[in-house]
């Protein structure tokens, strides 16, 4: 019987989140090829390296903090968010940015106002937009180890990569009808009737996330806020199937499920009261829909999360529960000392 890590320590909490990522990681490897694992490996090494360097420079105990797994988690989250055919330097740059700029410049574990992984994701998305949008693998042409290795070194063969469902809707489908779109191989070949390959990855993340809920590592509020919020708003605007991205694409494609359980649930940069977490999730959903629909980038979760990170303290401020024995919840702030 394997002893599972417990919620009684920070490292235990982090280790459980890492474990919950494994199913998604394996399915992603099956769908997108061994490049995913190469990314995870590169991200882990960079995360450990930059974390150790920062701790040393800040004169903090290196081993204690390294073994709390928080840096590794940031690395994995980035490795799984970035395109599977990313070159090694893109991964390293992103992870180092997350750890150094996103975390340690603010004071290390627990002090960062923004989600480090999403901060770094936005940075590389803005700095290397071509890589970030074209290095996605076509799930119907999973590359072998050789082409994955070549992509890792930065020489991705064009044939293996393709656009994601969200970017197809954004750039290529604007003039097509729903029936014409459905004949695209990405949707025609989908065994669950959603998006080929991607649907299985989303399902695997869902399984990992539900396990975390079951273990009490996180509460349901933020995931439900994001998933339900996005569903409602996407369903509302997708009445006409020929215009706009359908609901199921919003729910399956991109980082939706992954973000619902592994990104908006980050306690450090999110809201903490139960109602606040729900609102935080809904806010991310609304912003995601807005940016996906009207913005320049096909996916938007990272931007939405960063924007909501800024709002988290205010959300917490206005969603305090009623203290037992009081007539109403506290409003406003008290002293300024």
């Amino acid at each position: 019987m394997i002893q599972l890590p417990s919620n009684r320590s920070t490292s235990g909490v982090m280790a459980q989140v890492l474990l919950a990522l494994v199913p998604g990681m394996l399915v992603a490897t099956w769908v997108f090829g061994p490049g995913v694992l190469l990314n995870v490996l590169m991200a882990s090494l960079t995360a450990w390296g930059s974390e150790a360097l920062c701790l040393r420079l800040r004169k903090r105990p290196v081993i204690v903090r390294l073994t709390d797994h928080s840096a590794l988690l940031t690395g994995w989250l980035l490795a799984l968010s970035l395109p599977p055919a990313s070159p090694w330097w893109l991964i390293s740059l992103a992870v180092a940015t997350a750890i150094v700029l996103g975390k340690h410049l603010y004071g290390g574990l627990g002090q960062n106002p923004l989600n480090p992984a999403m901060l770094a994701y936005c940075l590389v998305l803005i700095s290397a937009p071509v890589s970030m949008t074209t290095l996605w693998i076509d799930p119907l042409a999973t590359p072998g180890i050789t082409s994955a290795w070549m992509a890792f070194l930065g020489t991705a063969p064009d044939a293996a990569t393709g656009a994601t469902a969200l970017s197809l809707y954004r750039n290529d489908f604007t003039a097509l009808t729903a029936i014409e779109i459905a004949s695209h191989p990405l949707f025609r070949e989908a065994s669950l009737g959603l998006i080929a390959g991607v649907e299985w990855v989303a399902l695997a993340y869902l399984v990992g996330g539900l396990w975390l809920l079951f273990r009490g590592v996180m509460t349901w509020h933020a995931p439900v806020g994001l998933l339900l919020g996005l569903f409602v708003v996407a369903a509302f605007f997708a009445i006409d199937p020929d215009s706009g991205t359908p609901v199921w694409v919003h729910m399956t494609a991109g980082a939706t499920v992954f973000a619902a359980f592994f990104i908006v649930t980050d306690p450090v940069s999110g809201a903490t009261s139960p109602r606040g977490r729900l609102l935080f999730g809904v806010g991310v959903a609304l912003l995601t829909y807005l940016i996906r629909t009207f913005g320049h980038y096909p996916d938007a979760i990272a931007f939405a999360v960063l924007l909501m990170n800024f709002a988290a303290p205010m959300i917490d401020h206005y969603t305090r529960p009623r203290i037992v024995g009081r007539d109403a919840a506290i409003k406003g702030s008290g002293g300024t000392s």
């Binding site: 919620n7 920070t10 290390g108 574990l109 509460t219 139960p274 305090r320």
Partner: peptide
């Protein structure tokens, strides 16, 4: 006694609080 680590604002304390305070704040 276990080593004290930084608060990660996980909110477990707020769930446990019988008075519904927000201990992390």
């Amino acid at each position: 006694q276990q080593p004290i680590e930084p608060c990660i604002r996980c909110g477990l304390c707020a769930e446990a609080c019988p008075v519904q305070l927000q201990p992390q704040r």
